[in-house]
Design a protein around this nucleic acid. Structure first.
Lengths: 122, 122
DNA sequence: CGCACATGCAACAGCTTAGTTGCATAATTT
DNA sequence: AAATTATGCAACTAAGCTGTTGCATGTGCG
């Protein structure tokens, strides 16, 4: 392996942990739930179901998946289960994407540097 | 539905399109492939397989999934299939997360505003 | 109490995913 | 030409995901 990629590999460890977050966001219904929860305070399962095309039971499962990924948090109040957005994990996912983008930017910069340093290569 | 959330709903349409991107990134092996590809130029399937824990055939499938999501692009050169990172879709995913974050920030700002406007509510 | 509402739990069907192994094919190299 | 390398294609398995329906449980209210 080239020494150039080794530094990047060291920083990849935390990146792998974010895969479950992306998996949780990788469903249209769940992504919609997260988006909806981020616009408000707390919502009951019945309220959240109104904005989807699936049954209440399906929404419950999606919320459990999101909770497993740490993207939402639920609390019981009386007879209803209230859910709210949890921003920390989403921020982590954002940082992962930024990391990948930055690697790509560095790669482009290195390529440009190389071209300008050796303009008469042929 | 409250008029407050309706504006947000209008902007949710493009957000739903990003779910497949997150789904593609939601696998540890695939996320690793994307990260690796973003650090360099092009890599063959055999090269990419070295950094994974699965077989070459499995890597091929993962690359096809990533290509379907528009995150990578492959071209044939001689007997090898070279793959490279495609930054556009990842940038789109980034914007989705930023959008959700911004909704959350707006919500917090609105909450704070409300508290300061009605400090003696009890 | 009795009714309505909100949710939880369980079982099932259909489909998709991730991975493997085995073999075939095409391109390089010696 | 023969051996090596890189990949493609196909079949198969095991497991997981998404969604449903049906029923049970708990809570609030008149």
């Amino acid at each position: 392996m080239s020494p150039k990629t080794r530094d990047a590999d060291k920083r990849k460890a935390p990146l792998a942990d974010t895969a479950p977050i992306f998996a949780a966001l990788g469903d249209e219904t769940r992504l919609g739930l997260v988006a909806h929860l981020a616009t408000g305070d707390t919502f009951s399962i019945a309220q959240l179901t109104e904005n989807t095309f699936v049954t209440r039971q399906a929404v419950t499962r999606h919320l459990e998946v999101l909770a497993q990924a740490g993207l939402v948090r639920g609390t019981r109040r009386g007879r209803e289960h209230l859910w709210q957005f949890e921003p920390a994990r989403l921020a982590l996912a954002q940082r992962s994407l930024e990391q990948i983008s930055s690697w790509w930017d560095e790669k482009l910069a290195a390529l440009k540097e190389k071209v300008e340093t050796e303009p008469d290569t042929k």
